[in-house]
Structures are given as structure tokens and as C-alpha cells.
Design a protein around this nucleic acid. Structure first.
Lengths: 327, 327
DNA sequence: CTGAAGCATGCAAGCGCTATCATTCTGATC
DNA sequence: GATCAGAATGATAGCGCTTGCATGCTTCAG
């Protein structure tokens, strides 16, 4: 930067200002500086900048799983929403482990990010404490909470379960089933199940037959799950799969078992993943507002960072049941 | 750090050493320091550390798409392979744009990472120049090249196409088809197509009927693609889909069209995505060594960073055709 | 013509660590 | 007991920026 300053005939402070707040330096000085930058092919050292200013044009984003296409639309929208703001996203994944999350938060904070985005509302106490003392905006997403760390943008997983139950009931289902994956790790699945089971019980239905898959949601798991479910109660005529991937497997398995979908068996998933509309039959599913969450998170983030939005708040973006031919 | 030093009754240099090279400080001093760190809940400022040492325990990783589950296994394996090394991954996605890649490289380098990992062998000239002058290890992955920037780990996309052609020929296919998505952006798909088409031509087959989908690979696109393909030549009896997602859509569409798979129509995908084994019929596909690439990349990275491995080299991890019931 | 106000720029003190070199403290050897 | 490696620790000068304050230069009302 000193070289640039020398070549442009100004001081380093002016160069720094030209880069950070272009409109407070005079146009000709600015253009001389940019010329010098070009000539010397100077690249700014953001590390030094971050140290000096104690903030780093960086936003830490933590999701449970990069692999999981659930969060893909959110990340994409978030990235687009922050594009041009100068902020860069630091992505980390926890593998659904609260401890991994704590470590990630801690190592992200060591980079003094301008804000943090987490997935979910449940975190280790220490994670919350660490975040609170960092005094930066914290956005949680993909859930709701009355007591967010700071702000939260998402929807209610319980209401997903309730929605599916009501839909099954309307479609004339008698005997309900549920297939859930990874429930010891992913408490959101647990919430969806709870919404489903409780709504069923309140409406006077028998408790749904449940299959819990120990692994991550997969089509193979879904197929196995449905087989097991039908073996344990052949009268089941409507099954809520905690995830579209599972529902896809169930769909395949239903065909193998010779069960007509939706007449003999209704199948509803969650996620509205890309293939849901293309399956045969097309899959009914609950669509979470993935993209909207990303858009809204970016909007709130920008507002917070510019100081135009106050801290706090829980933003319910709702869910929607997309009825297709599988129910 | 000064506070920690004071509380532990040592100098900041010793604290710094206790954190970076624990085994060169005496055990009791070390434990006193850790106690002080605990008491003060001190968190190290990595930004300052990176500035002082001119290197930041960070590795920049750039992939075309976070959404694309292709790279998921690689990222996961890479993450696991680097776990415990103290290095942290910085993830960025280019959306298949070379310009976005250049910008990402530039902004990652501003953080003085210890190494960079890129996807693919084709980059803008300036990207390559920038990387070369950064003097850090650069790993390219998911392809092969005789002239990597530094090191490259992957497989040949052309040979994927050849492999599929040979398989179709062995299975008695007569009239070939190809469905590819996003080919103006993703030149790897172009390479797979080239391998397929050229092998066919060399073996005396008529040029495959081709459908190019403008969008990203999707099941919906695959279904449309197959419909269009069969409309333009109903004699096609074997179709290579550039991606399993497309193949899945084609599989659904084949059922709709009343085409028996594999007797009337053979379908082969690429990716061995998670659902391939679970579809009905299970999908034949070419499995890229996604996980292995991550493992090998991590191994090379650690070697380079420890100085035990020399720069340079192209590592072919090969591909494998997984034959299932769709061919 | 003067002085206040506003704008553009420069000066210089850090930001919180790391790394080099110097110093002190072992403990083994004769 | 003296000597001296070798290990452990301390003092201190940066790393390359940012930013508060100082300065000089314009502009313009009075």
C-alpha cells in the first residue's frame, strides 16, 4: 500500500480511504490511486485490514450439512443477497453435531466476522454465551423461537407435521405411518414428527406406526423403511416421510410391493426437493421456504450491518403443502 | 494474550508458543497458561496471528456449486482428512463461472491462505498467474491435466464417455442418444460427451442423437430431454445422460412413454448419486471417485504443508461403471 | 478582506499477535 | 566446583493496514 501511495503521490491513509470509502476522496486522486493499483497489481491484505479495524468483511455461515440439498437454495439466495456488499461468506458444516457447531463458532469468531448465521434454534449453552459476548449480529434460520439469540428467520417444524396430518385426514386416510431418519441427531425431524403425531392424537386417530432410520435420509433407507412399516402393519394407508429422499425410496418400494399410490397408500414427504415434481407419481410434499429464508436473512443482515434494522425478532416465513399425485 | 501471560506469570511469547508449539514449553508452564486461558475465557485472535506470521491456518477451497451433491463427498472427505491439522477450510462456489472463480481466488488470497484447492483444470489466465505468484500449494481436482498449475487429482471425463459407449455396445445397443445439461457452462459435461461421441464414431456407430438442456441438471429437465429425444428419433435404444439427475428424469419419462427399461431403452447416468441404487429400475451409472479425490487431496495437502511431498503431479483415480438394471 | 465552515489529505499511533535474538536456567561432564 | 551444551523463557520490533486528529486549502457570508 505504501508503494501504491508513493506511485500515486499520496499518503497511505488516502489509499486506504480510496478503497474503503471511495466517495470521500477527490475523483482525480482516486483515479490516480486505481491506476497505481493496476500498475503494481497490488492486492490488499485483508488480514491487516481486519486487524486494524477489528472487523473483517466476512460473515460466518454454519449449516448442518453441505451435502444436504435442503440448504442449497438458502445458501444460494444468501450469497446472491450479499453479493456486491463486499462481505464474503465463510461456510462451515456441523454434521448435525452441537459440539462441532461450538467449535466452528469459536474458530469463526477468531476471524472477527461482521456477523454470524446459524442453522436452528438449539445450541450448546457455551455457543450461545460466546455469540452473545461477541456483540455482532447473529441470525438463526430454518426455525422459529420466542427467544432467539438475536434474530431468527424460518418456519415451524411442528406445523409441518400438523399440516401433513390434516392433509392425510382430508384425503381419507385411516391408518397413519411415519418414517424418520437420523432422529437422534436431527431434532428438527423430531419436531416434525411431534407435530404429526400430536395432531393425529388430538383428532382421535390411533398413534401412527413409526419407523426410525438410524442413518442419514436416503432413498435406500426410505425403501427399507416402507418395507418394514408395511410388514409391521399392512393396514397403513398414509405415510409421512421426514424427508423427500425417504419418500422417493418409499415410492419405489411401494411399486415393488405392488401398492397403488395414492389409492392404497398415500405418501407425503418434506423438502420439495428438485426431483419431487418429476417422480412417478409426482410426490406430494411440504415445501420449506428455503430460498425465502436466504433472501430474508440477507436482507436482515444488510440492514443490521448498515445499522438500519434493530436487533431482535422472529420471522415466520411459513410452509406450504404442495399436493401432487402421491396423496 | 497479555492478560493471559500476566495471570500465568509468563511473557506473551511463551503464551504464543504454548498455543502454537505446545511441546517446547515446560508442562507446568503450559498448564498454568491453559488455566489462565480458561479463567479469562481468552480466545486467540487469528487475524493478528495471521498478520504477524504472514500465513493463516486456512485453506481456500473453490467448487463450482455447493448445491451439486457431486462435490459433497469430496468436501466431506477433505474436511475429515484435514481435521485435527488445525487448518480450516474456506469454501466458495463459482456457479460454473470462470470470472467468479477469478474473483474468489483473488479474495481468498487476500486472506493469505496456506493453500488453495480448485475444481477443474481450466481457469482464466489471470487466475493462474495470480495463483502462481502466490507461492502456495495449489491443488486442482476432479480432472486430469498434463500441465497442472501445481498438482491435480481426479479422473478423465472423456474416458467416462468412452466407458459408457463401450458398455452400451456390449449390451447390444444400436442407436445412441445423449442428453446433456448446462453444457455452455460446464465444460466437463462437454468432455464426457466428446468421449462418448468419438468412441461411437470410431466404432462405426451413427452419430448419437443429442439433446442439450440449457439449465442445470434436473429430473424435470431429464424427463423433457428424453421426450424430445424419442420424438426426434424413436429408434434410439440407449441414452447416456450427463448426470444421474437427468437419468432419473429420463427413467420416469420412459415409464410414462411406456418404454421398457432396459429392453427397449437403456439408460446410463453419471455420478452414482445416492438415489441411483434405489430407483426403479436401479440406475446404471459411472461412479466418479468423489470421496477418494477428497481423501487424496487432503493427503497431498498435508504432505505439501509439512514439506514431505514435492510439488507437481497428476493423479488419476479412475472411474468405474456401476452396472445396475437400467442397461 | 476576514473568519468560519467544510472538504481533502497527511501524520502517526495502534490493532494483537509472531519471530528473532538475547538471556537465564537447567543438569550433565570432567 | 567449574564449564558448557541445550532447553526454556523474555524483550522487542515489526506484520500491513485503519482511523482519530491535525493541517492546509477552498469557498462564501458578512
Amino acid at each position: 500500500m505504501a508503494d501504491v501511495a508513493r506511485l500515486a503521490g499520496v499518503s497511505t491513509s488516502t489509499v486506504s480511504r480510496a478503497l474503503r470509502m471511495p466517495d470521500i476522496v477527490s475523483p482525480d486522486v482516486r483515479s490516480r490511486i486505481h491506476e497505481a493499483i493496476e500498475r503494481l497489481s497490488y492486492r490488499r491484505n485483508l488480514v491487516a485490514g481486519a486487524l486494524a479495524s477489528a472487523r473483517s468483511m466476512t460473515i460466518g455461515v454454519i449449516i448442518p450439512s453441505i451435502i444436504n440439498s435442503f440448504f442449497a437454495a438458502t445458501i444460494e439466495a444468501l450469497e446472491q443477497g450479499m453479493a456486491g456488499s463486499g462481505y464474503q461468506l465463510l461456510l462451515g458444516n456441523t454434521g448435525y453435531s452441537a459440539e462441532a457447531e461450538r467449535q466452528l463458532v469459536s474458530s469463526f469468531l477468531a476471524w472477527s466476522p461482521a456477523a454470524m448465521v446459524l442453522t436452528g434454534r438449539r445450541h450448546e449453552n457455551e455457543t450461545v454465551r460466546t455469540l452473545l459476548t461477541s456483540h455482532i449480529p447473529v441470525l438463526e434460520m430454518w426455525e422459529l423461537s420466542d427467544h432467539p439469540i438475536d434474530m431468527i428467520v424460518g418456519f415451524s417444524h411442528r406445523s409441518v407435521g400438523e399440516l401433513v396430518f390434516r392433509h392425510f385426514a382430508e384425503r381419507g386416510a385411516q391408518r397413519l405411518g411415519f418414517i424418520g431418519a437420523y432422529m437422534d441427531k436431527d431434532y428438527r425431524t423430531v419436531d416434525r414428527r411431534a407435530g404429526f403425531v400430536e395432531a393425529a392424537s388430538q383428532a382421535g386417530f390411533a398413534a401412527p406406526v413409526e419407523i426410525r432410520l438410524p442413518e442419514r435420509a436416503s432413498a435406500v433407507g426410505g425403501a427399507l423403511g416402507l418395507r418394514e412399516l408395511m410388514a409391521s402393519d399392512p393396514k397403513v394407508d398414509a405415510v409421512f416421510c421426514s424427508n423427500d429422499m425417504i419418500a422417493l425410496g418409499a415410492l419405489f418400494e411401494a411399486r415393488r410391493l405392488g401398492l397403488a399410490v395414492p389409492d392404497q397408500l398415500k405418501i407425503c414427504g418434506f423438502g420439495d426437493l428438485e426431483f419431487a415434481a418429476a417422480c412417478q407419481p409426482p410426490l406430494s410434499t411440504v415445501r420449506p421456504p428455503g430460498r425465502e429464508i436466504g433472501v430474508q436473512t440477507a436482507k436482515l443482515l444488510r440492514g443490521r450491518l448498515e445499522g438500519t434494522i434493530e436487533a431482535g425478532g422472529s420471522f415466520d416465513l411459513g410452509v406450504e403443502l404442495v399436493q401432487r399425485a402421491s396423496t
